[in-house]
Write a protein that binds this DNA or RNA. Sequence first.
DNA 1: GCCTCATAAAATTTCGAAATTATATTGACA
DNA 2: TGTCAATATAATTTCGAAATTTTATGAGGC
Lengths: 237, 237
Amino acid sequence: MTSASPARSLSDRTYLQLREDIVAGKLQAGAKLKLEGLMQDYGVGMSPLREALARLIGDRMVTTEAQRGFWVAPMSLAELDDLTRVRSLLETEAISSAIVKGDAAWMQSVTDTFSQLADIEAQLPASAEALTPQLLEAWESSNRAFHASLVAAADSPIIIRFRQQLYQQSERYRRVSLTASRGWRSVTEEHLAIYEAVRDRNVLRACKMTEIHLTRTADEVRKAFAAANPERFLAAT
Amino acid sequence: MTSASPARSLSDRTYLQLREDIVAGKLQAGAKLKLEGLMQDYGVGMSPLREALARLIGDRMVTTEAQRGFWVAPMSLAELDDLTRVRSLLETEAISSAIVKGDAAWMQSVTDTFSQLADIEAQLPASAEALTPQLLEAWESSNRAFHASLVAAADSPIIIRFRQQLYQQSERYRRVSLTASRGWRSVTEEHLAIYEAVRDRNVLRACKMTEIHLTRTADEVRKAFAAANPERFLAAT
DNA sequence: GCCTCATAAAATTTCGAAATTATATTGACA
DNA sequence: TGTCAATATAATTTCGAAATTTTATGAGGC
């Protein structure tokens, strides 16, 4: 699964692999995580496995009940709404700070990551069926890098960390909707609008565009859920 | 140490005990956490201990380097400022939401926790020397309960969780300054002002009073650090 | 005297199994 | 036939020690 990762211990590696498999949906929301099975699947012992699970509980990717085991954290429309709301709050705060504090090197990194993302988005096919897994992975990676670079210069490590955590949680939801047909054109335009606002150091516009981007993304996800078997992915709301 | 706690497993209990000992300063900031020693001190084996540490890393109470072990997370004035800033952001958002969404039962719980806190604050002595550990613990508990009740009706589980985490982190800093002399009178007045604003469902005033309260508390902590051996508690800023 | 390399000690990380707790099954009784 | 208790099974939790990695120690060479 995840191969070349900066994991210095088995525990680290297992944590990253489990997280990726949950985000990707290989481990379905709500599924019971049997320790015996996970030890076999990931080829590790009890200790690093439990350590990885403890970290995933902090990330809200896994839930636990004492003496009863572990489950993949459920998904819900209520959580999607909450995630979107708090991301808006933190992301706008972070971008505002970054625009004020960021130097030329930061602006260059924003330009670079945006260019790479724009290149990939230009290659995206119109139909969802023609979207290869490789291209999807490249887009996910570039999208993550672009949004991370936007807030990298913010002078609040705590906000940056919280934002990062919520981004990962949201990725779970986005992955479900990305396999369905999407309005890629709109996303591309939204990224451009954010980039231009940041480039011009226009705080208000950058915040507004960011909020629109997050809201629209959440709308897409909500639609995809409504279309394809919501009961498979969603807990009772 | 922590005795009657809702811990269903050794791992849980160890997590709570370690966190309390770090917040209380029994485990000093920056100190190396030797696994062998911790196993003896807390009377547990390797597995629950490492699980507890993994959770504390998520809470930013502990840091780790692969293959090199664990340390009590350092403290810094920079982090105090960041904590104060983000707490203001989340706390005001949460209180606003709670005032709008909260029902009569919530308002009652706010009144109850405020009354209890006011009672205890009325008993506080003028000089720091006369402050008993029992009274300090009672105040910490009531203060926590009051502030928690204020935001309990907010309709964002994520904000409530983040707020809770930052409150615990801040408690570490506050404990250092509480042993020094304090302007208790001012804190009492601030709590009253927040309570009255919430009781009147005055969102703007509740937010403003909350911000003032957080800022003044941080100022007290900063002063206490300047007075008493900052290099003992603080990492390089 | 100082740097380098080999060796020893200490600490972390991981495994595998024992002990504990929860869940499922079976049989007795009303 | 349904309910409850007793037993058997399965799963989680914990321990203690082996394996790995880092850090400290000391000898030899420049």
